[in-house]
Amino acid sequence: MLDTSRDQTPAPTDEQRGCLFALSQPPLMIFLTVIGALLLMAAVHDLFLL
């Protein structure tokens, strides 16, 4: 049977999450990869095709 007693209080989670946690999120990494690829393609275009 599932124990649903409320005798113990959970430990507080007041940990600050920093920049590395934010950068480890997949949607942000996909966004940054797309932006980086666009900048790289623009730079290659300017350097070699103009």
Rank of each mutant, 00 (worst) to 15 (best):
D46T: 06
M29F: 05
C19P: 11
M41T: 09
Q8H: 14
L39Q: 05
I35Y: 11
S5Q: 11
H45N: 12
D14H: 06
T4N: 14
L23P: 00
L32Y: 00
F48M: 09
P12I: 03
A11P: 08
D14K: 15
F21P: 04
M29V: 09
R6E: 05
L47R: 09
D7H: 10
R17H: 10
G36M: 12
R17L: 05
R6A: 08
D3R: 07
L39M: 07
L47S: 15
L32N: 04
L47N: 06
P10G: 07
L50K: 15
F31V: 06
H45M: 08
P27Q: 04
M29T: 08
Q8M: 03
P26D: 04
R17W: 08
A11T: 07
L50S: 08
L2R: 10
V44Q: 11
L38V: 13
H45S: 13
S5Y: 12
M1K: 08
L20Y: 11
P10H: 05
A37T: 14
M1D: 10
L23W: 11
A22T: 09
M1A: 06
A22V: 12
D7G: 00
G36I: 09
I35G: 00
F31M: 04
T33C: 14
S5A: 14
L40V: 02
P26N: 01
D46W: 08
I30G: 02
L47Q: 08
L40H: 08
L20F: 12
M29Q: 14
Q16Y: 04
P10E: 14
G18T: 02
P12Y: 13
A11I: 02
F48L: 11
R17Q: 12
F31R: 05
L47W: 06
V34L: 13
Q8T: 13
G18Y: 04
P26E: 03
D3F: 01
C19I: 15
T9P: 06
Q25D: 00
M1T: 08
L23M: 14
S5W: 11
L23I: 07
L49V: 09
D14A: 07
L38I: 12
D7C: 02
A11L: 08
M41A: 15
A37V: 15
T33P: 03
L28K: 02
L32A: 09
T33W: 12
L20A: 06
L40G: 09
